[in-house]
């Protein structure tokens, strides 16, 4: 009982200063969402960068109100990552959100709220977190999910996957051609046998 009380108290003492001090910056940065939606014409939500598709406010999974003391520690560490290159593992962000903070730092991220179009260039050209062949900066501009390999610009996905699976495509072409060739000959042969048996003796 005492242990439980102590655990609750320590959790309360950790949560209160965080909520009191940081709740003003807890909401998702809607400037980025508005920019992406206008530019791409695709509806997006907080799940592009956040762990929870409804954003960080609330008590659900990946939201401020539902974090454990250990997670709050990681959140505070991420919030203090003002310069780029620091290890970031915020529980309210997904892999892409953490990647943004780690790549450009919190300071520049806050600056980009007024110029969200510049975030794409700041992300660099090489990062492709979902491995679908479309770089993250492009997925950000297109309003597609940088962590879902089935989501992306359809044409780019098609070209990248065609290049990736060219061996499979060549093999299936061979298999299909040979199957059709075999079946066609089987049909022709059956027809000839049938005709031969029908001829008057």
């Amino acid at each position: 009982m005492t242990m439980r009380l102590r655990s609750c108290l320590s959790r309360f003492l950790l949560v209160v200063p965080v909520l009191a001090g940081c709740v003003a910056t807890a909401d998702a940065y809607s400037e980025f969402q508005k920019f992406v939606q206008t530019r791409s014409g695709r509806a997006i939500n907080c799940a592009m960068c956040h762990a929870n598709s409804d954003g960080p406010d609330g008590a659900g999974f990946g939201q401020i109100g539902g974090l454990s003391p250990e997670e709050i520690g990681r959140l505070n560490q991420a919030r203090a990552a003002f310069e780029p290159g620091q290890a970031v593992d915020s529980p309210i962000l997904n892999k892409f959100g953490n990647h943004i903070v780690a790549t450009i730092g919190k300071t520049r991220l806050l600056e980009f709220r007024n110029r969200p179009e510049e975030l794409a260039a700041a992300l660099g050209t090489t990062s492709d977190l979902d491995g679908d062949g479309i770089p993250d900066w492009r997925e950000y501009l297109d309003g597609t999910h940088p962590l879902k390999k089935t989501d992306g610009n359809p044409w780019l996905l098609f070209v990248n996957n065609l290049s990736r699976y060219r061996f499979h495509v060549i093999m299936i072409v061979f298999a299909t051609v040979l199957t059709i060739y075999g079946l066609a000959n089987l049909l022709r042969g059956s027809s000839e046998v049938h005709d031969a048996t029908q001829e008057p003796k």
């Binding site: 989501d151 359809p154 699976y165």
Partner: peptide, 17 residues
């Protein structure tokens, strides 16, 4: 086969859907 292999059907929807 080529279309199914290279072009996910879902890519035509916005991901929140």
């Amino acid at each position: 086969f080529v279309v199914a292999l290279c072009l996910p059907f879902e890519s035509f929807f916005a991901y929140p859907l």
